[in-house]
Each structure stands twice: as structure tokens, then as C-alpha cells.
Nucleic acid binder design. Structure first.
Lengths: 330, 330
DNA sequence: TGTGAAAATTAGAGCGCTCTATACATAAGC
DNA sequence: GCTTATGTATAGAGCGCTCTAATTTTCACA
């Protein structure tokens, strides 16, 4: 399929290639007459501009690259959706690559984006601080979402985890709970901040912040839940590291005949699809990921347009109350 | 950031640009000595090949485009993962675009891919039969996953829905069930085949195939479940259109105090993450999406290498038995 | 030492587009 | 009528790479 080029269109329309180029780029400096003629020829010849050539010649791609650690994670899907929305508003395209949950994969995905020379990159990564990241930020405008490292070279956009934890503690204490346990996620992105927010919120109320070790998955949370329910005085509420972890807790409590929320209240984090599932209906903290994605695009475009100093912003989450939390049992 | 070009590297290494090009493409026709020299210079100058220029000059992109209707759907995520695996094996890159669940979005995403002139496209679409799709298949090698239309212009890869339904019916009848209801998903991709498979499997066993209307989401399945449980003789097993629908059924049954699987067995379809959730643990049909993605890549590469006639293949799903199915109550 | 083939390298013509000058109309100003 | 504006259109030089064909170097062998 030999492709139709601008020259073909120009010849067919009886004008110069430069004019066709102007028409294709919606330049106002073209007469209506010529524009119509060119457009007609282009349509007739089934002309499709060659992006490679255009980008090569113009030196910019009009494209934002998005690197997502894990396509399965709705958290990242929403981020990408927000980026897409922001990009569309600004007439830019979005190309997505994924690291398939592996660090090597993330690096390869970034390499792909770097080679493509997208105008900027939005990072939805799992592990920051890798060399590939800082090297990248050196080479192209970059916004990292949920990166609490705040390096100079890139902008960052984080959720206010402390505030989210505060919301949870406030909600639970207002329901009368005082023995509240948090299952954390070690050093995973956002987890330390979430934990810190929890202990602060509890301490501020004169309550003992009890933390069990876990991770952002079901199994470890389930394991933690087993230990937790073996306590002499089990808590009346459990605040899990994220929705998936909450689901693990949920499953264990159900299996040992503990009623939710009559006996124990459970709270998740992220408001992923699973939290909304009728069969679970989890009270959780909603991170405005779509908004994050949108804001990330704005920051990126500022950078593309020349801003030099890094910005680090915090976005406020909100609480979504569903059916897994209720008044403390007496 | 003026970029380093091949000429810079060539000059620095004291060789010609053509030689650098050969080294970059791993040509065997370069002496070890020169190769080392070039590589050293490239590293020192932080050289990164310009993909746009390369693709323009070579006329191919070494990239597979993947269009996914919905990034939130794990079904598509796995498809993409399979494509990525296949692509990596063949030294190709993968670029993902999404239609964000809208038909217009799908068309725009395809336009993006077409403009990029990726060597081929894998389609994970929701609605096939649109003009944009057939136009696309005309222009570039295309493999459509889960497209039961089987047009000449593109390859298709479908799951053997009839077989999947047969697996479900076989599993349930072997547990003693005979009053089995299927909640379908109208004309959504795969749904008619699934329904047909169900009715055939039931009829083959001399059982009445009862079908309720639904869709691939929770709400409609929940609505159907409400009607179903109002039947004079409610079924002892419900086979939902997909996992999400099963979750809706699950939620309703729980809410009216029906025990799963003691009173009613529930089966889903797709084996998405939610089926594996401890809190749900759904018996479901596993579609080998990752394998589909992998196979799609193989077909695509055959096409890229010149195969003209379309291939239409069927992949066999398998049954994953979890905790929502059990012997029929007496 | 010469010769031919094989191996290694290079020149240079594109790939399809953008973009800066420059050219050419036509209209306006005096 | 001539000059200066103003609006359109075009020539042509790249953008950074690939790839064919040609050239140069190397090496085996007579």
C-alpha cells in the first residue's frame, strides 16, 4: 500500500506542497478557495498525513506519553483517563505504555517513550527513585503521580494521604469506634504517608494507633486480619491499606463468622471498582485520580511551554461511605 | 535540549554516519573494533536514536498498536499484556490507545494508530462493525479480538463461547442442578454466542433453557436476579453473562438472605480479578485473554509478512471452580 | 608481489513533512 | 501611475535517519 503523500495531493489540487501543509495544519493564511480545493483532493485521494515525517520536521510530537505500572489497576486506568481528557482539551494525543508490574518493564516502557520523544511524560509508576526516572526527567518534561520523593527535575502530584487517613479516623470515631487498627503497606508508594496520617489522627484524639504490617494485596491483609482477630481485645474497626487489602480482611472476617459492619467496621482506600461492587460495598477513601490525570496534563503543558522550576502539588481525597462501616457495637 | 544525532556520534567516533546506523541496527557487517568505538562514542554523547526519523526512513515502525475500548476492564488489560509478551518475543514495541468506553473514542484512538502507521493493530473493541474498523483493516494488518463478524479484511480471534457455556452446564448438571437460568447480555460482543451455547447445552440434556435479559454490568443482572427469585420455582443455579453480572446476582441473593452456594449456585464468566476476590470467590469461565493477545501478535506478524487471506480462530476457555457452586439442595 | 574475492566502510539520494524566506498578486494610499 | 501594504502562495533547505550502490580495505592464495 504505497501511501499518498502531500505531493500527490498538491499535484492533484494544482497547488504547492507547502500550501497543502498549511491546510493540514489549519493555518488561517490560506484562502477559502484553496482550502476547499486541497481538502477535496485530500479526501479524494484518501490522504493521511504521515506523523513520523511531521514530527521529524517540526521537532515536536503533540503527544503526551503515559507510563503505567499496571494496566489491571483501575487506579492507573483513571489516571490515564484524566490525562486523556486534559490532552484532548489541548489538542494533544495520548500514547500509553505499561511496565506490566515489573521494574524492568517500567524502564523499558520509559525507554520507548523517550525514544518516541513525546513532548512530555506522565508517570504512574510503582517504584520511584530508579535511575531511569531521574535520567528521563532530565530529558523531557515529566510529571510523576504519587511520587513522594519530590525531586527537582520533575513535577509531582500526590494525594493528601494524611488528610485521607484523617477522614477515615474522623468517620470511625464519630461512629463511636476507639479501638481502630490500621493494616499498612510498608514502603509502597503512599503507604508511609497513609500510616503517618493514621497515627497522627489517632494520637490527636488520645487514641492508641495500632498498626499491623501488610501490603497492597489481599493475601497479606488477610494474614494480618488473622493476627488481628486473635488479639485479646480485637478492634471494632479495621482501616486497610487499600481496597484490595480491605477485601482480604472482609473475606477473613466473613469466614470466621464476624459480621460486617455489626461486629467490625472495615474501611478501604482508593475507591476502585471493587469497592463499589454490590457484593462488597466498601466504605473507602476516594482518590481523585481522574482529576490528578487532568492536573498532571496541565502541569506538563506548563513545563512544555518553558516553566523551569518544579511544582509539587497535593490533591485532597474524599470519603465514600458505603455498607462496611457502622456504629460501634456495645 | 538539542539532541545528539547520528552525525555527532559518527564525527566523535571518526567514522561515517552509515556505519553508526549499522551499529545501531546490530548489523553483523561491522567489525568488532568499529562497533566498540561507535558504541563508546554513543554512550559518551548520550545518544538516543530518533524513532521518528528512523521510521520515516525505513518505512516501518516495528511497533504494534493496541486499541482497547476500556482500560478499566481487566479483560482488556490481559489482552494487552499478551500482545506485549508476543511483541517482546519478536523484538517489537507496543503502543496502547484507548477509546475510553465511547464509540467516538474508539474511532479517535484508531485514527491515532493509523496516523502513527504502526505495522499492525490489535483491536480490543466493544462494538465492531463500525466503518472506521473496516476502513482501518484496509489500510493496515489488523487482528480483532472477540469479533464474531469475521470480515475478510481482518483476522479475528474469538473465545469459544459455546464451549464455555457447555462447561458451565456440564459442571452444574454434574452437581445435580437442572433448573438453571442464564442471564444474558443482549447483543454485546460474545453474548449471543454464549446464550446460544447455553440453550444448546441445556437442550442436549433435555433441560429447559431459561434465559433472562441482562447486560455486562451489575445493575441489569441485579434487576434480572430480582425477577428470577420471584419465580414460582426459582432456579437452583444462575449462570450470569460475566463476572460483573454475577456479582450483581450475588449481591441481590445475599441481600434477601439466600445462601450461596447452599441455596443457589452462581457462575460468572471471564475470570476477572473480582472473581478471585476472597470476598466473592466466584466459579467462572476463564478466557485465555493473555494467550489471545499472544496469538493475536503472531497472526499480526504473519500478516505483516505478507499473508493475504484472513484467518479466524477460536480459543477454548476453561472452567475455574471456586466457592459459589455446590451440589443442588434437596 | 600481484590478484580477486570477501569484508568493511562510505557517499549520497531519499523518506514525507515543516518552516523561513521569498515571490507574486491584488488592494490601498498618495 | 507608482509606491507601499496586505494577503496568499511557493521554493527550497532541512529534520535525522535508512539503504543501495559504490568504494576502499583486508586477506587468502597463487
Amino acid at each position: 500500500m504505497a501511501q499518498t503523500t502531500m505531493d500527490d495531493v498538491a499535484q492533484h489540487a494544482g497547488v504547492s506542497r507547502a500550501l497543502v501543509s498549511l491546510v493540514m495544519r489549519d493555518s488561517p493564511r490560506v484562502s477559502d478557495h484553496s482550502r476547499a480545493k486541497v481538502l477535496a483532493s485530500a479526501a479524494e485521494l484518501d490522504y493521511r498525513p504521515n506523523v513520523w515525517a511531521r514530527n521529524l520536521a517540526s521537532g515536536q510530537t503533540n503527544t503526551i506519553g503515559v507510563m503505567l505500572n499496571d494496566l489491571h489497576n483501575p487506579y492507573f486506568a483513571e489516571l490515564a483517563e484524566g490525562v486523556a481528557a486534559g490532552a484532548t482539551e489541548n489538542g494533544m494525543e495520548v500514547l500509553i505504555t505499561s511496565g506490566w508490574q515489573r521494574e524492568a518493564g517500567e524502564n523499558a516502557a520509559i525507554e520507548t517513550l523517550l525514544n518516541l520523544r513525546t513532548d512530555g511524560i506522565v508517570l504512574g509508576a510503582a517504584r520511584f527513585g530508579s535511575e531511569a526516572f531521574s535520567e528521563m526527567a532530565q530529558q523531557t518534561p515529566t510529571v510523576a503521580v504519587s511520587n513522594f520523593h519530590k525531586p527537582d527535575a520533575m513535577d509531582t502530584l500526590c494525594n493528601d494521604e494524611a488528610y485521607g487517613a484523617e477522614l477515615v479516623v474522623e468517620h470511625l470515631t464519630s461512629l463511636g469506634h476507639s479501638r481502630i487498627v490500621h493494616i499498612d503497606a510498608g514502603t509502597a508508594p503512599g503507604a508511609p504517608e497513609r500510616r503517618k496520617g493514621f497515627t497522627t489522627a489517632m494520637s490527636n484524639r488520645g487514641l492508641a494507633p495500632i498498626v499491623f504490617e501488610g501490603d497492597y494485596n489481599e493475601q497479606s491483609a488477610r494474614a494480618a486480619a488473622i493476627d488481628i482477630m486473635k488479639l485479646k481485645e480485637p478492634p471494632t474497626a479495621i482501616f486497610a491499606a487499600n481496597d484490595l487489602a480491605a477485601s482480604g480482611v472482609f473475606a477473613h472476617l466473613r469466614s470466621i463468622g464476624v459480621s460486617i459492619p455489626d461486629d467490625v467496621s472495615v474501611v478501604g482506600y482508593d475507591d476502585t471498582v471493587l469497592a463499589g461492587l454490590g457484593a462488597i460495598s466498601l466504605t473507602t477513601v476516594r482518590q481523585p485520580m481522574q482529576m490528578s490525570g487532568h492536573r498532571a496534563t496541565e502541569l506538563l503543558i506548563e513545563r512544555i511551554n518553558g516553566r523551569e522550576v518544579a511544582k509539587h502539588e497535593l490533591l485532597r481525597p474524599s470519603l465514600v461511605v458505603r455498607s462496611t462501616t457502622g456504629p460501634v457495637p456495645k
